[in-house]
Computed example of a mutant assay.
Amino acid sequence: MEAFLISTGIVALAEIGDKTQLLAFVLAAKFRRPIPIVAAIFVATLANHAFAAAIGTWITSLLGPNVLRWVLGASFIAMAVWTLVPDKLDEEDTRFPRYGVFMTTLVAFFMAEMGDKTQVATVALAARYDSLLAVVAGTTLGMMLANVPAVYLGDRIAHRISLPLVHGIAAVIFAVLGVATLLGVGAGLAS
């Protein structure tokens, strides 16, 4: 349950103001069809985060517990710093091929999520917690918690959110996880 809750919280916070959330805003404004957009975001996130969690689990099998602890601790601290860097939407992320709302959103969201903060966080969380399904379910829920309101409410809520505050909170959580991991807190959870 801890893996699920931490994964949900971290990704929901990290996703606020992230380029994939900005993409959700753009897709919602462009197509004005929230149901296929939300469905495609869900499918793209599930596929992307399942792949990322599988990589995290694989990394766990390659590294010994002591090396893994240092790699994960440093990764979480790096994520804390990266979370403080604001994202912007690349021009290539906003191209709209003529494949319909669902497929356009699916492809655009999956590609935008490749190498993104939340995908890297999913790799680290899967390596940290020995519960692939809980991590994938949590990170996917976190993405949906951040992106569904972006699709449905768009501009009405975007200007009301303090991005620096949200990014700061996410950075603190990543840093605490990093330090706790380096200190060996919960070491039995990762093995």
Rank of each mutant, 00 (worst) to 15 (best):
S162D: 15
A3F: 07
A108E: 01
L125F: 09
R156F: 10
L183N: 08
L63M: 15
T140F: 05
D87W: 05
A180I: 00
G138Q: 09
T105K: 08
H167K: 15
M1G: 13
D93F: 00
G184K: 11
V136N: 09
M103S: 10
L145V: 15
V176D: 05
A47M: 12
F96S: 08
A44N: 13
A112K: 02
V26R: 10
M1V: 04
D130Y: 09
L153S: 04
I6Y: 05
L133E: 15
L153W: 13
T181W: 03
F4Q: 04
L141S: 06
G100F: 05
V26N: 10
V151A: 04
V185Q: 06
V123A: 08
A124Q: 00
A146F: 06
A78I: 10
G17F: 04
L177P: 03
I41E: 02
A74Y: 02
K19G: 02
T104I: 03
L84F: 06
S191M: 14
A78L: 14
L13G: 06
T60G: 13
T105F: 10
T8N: 08
G186F: 07
G178S: 12
V179E: 03
G56M: 07
S75G: 14
A171R: 05
A53M: 11
V120D: 01
G17I: 06
A3M: 07
I37R: 00
T118C: 15
D130F: 07
L13W: 04
V107E: 05
A190I: 13
G9K: 01
T83W: 04
D18N: 15
P149Q: 08
S61C: 04
F110K: 02
T105M: 11
D116K: 10
V81T: 11
A28V: 04
A187R: 14
L84S: 12
F102Q: 02
F4M: 06
G142D: 01
T105E: 11
L189K: 14
M144D: 06
K117I: 11
Q119N: 14
A47N: 03
V85W: 11
L46E: 07
G73L: 00
L182W: 12
H167V: 00
P149D: 10
V185L: 13
I157D: 08
V71A: 14
P65D: 14
L27G: 01
S75F: 13
T57A: 15
V185C: 00
A80H: 01
L165R: 12
L189T: 12
S75Q: 09
I59W: 08
L5H: 03
P164C: 07
H159A: 13
V38C: 13
A44I: 08
I59D: 09
I169F: 11
H167W: 07
A150C: 11
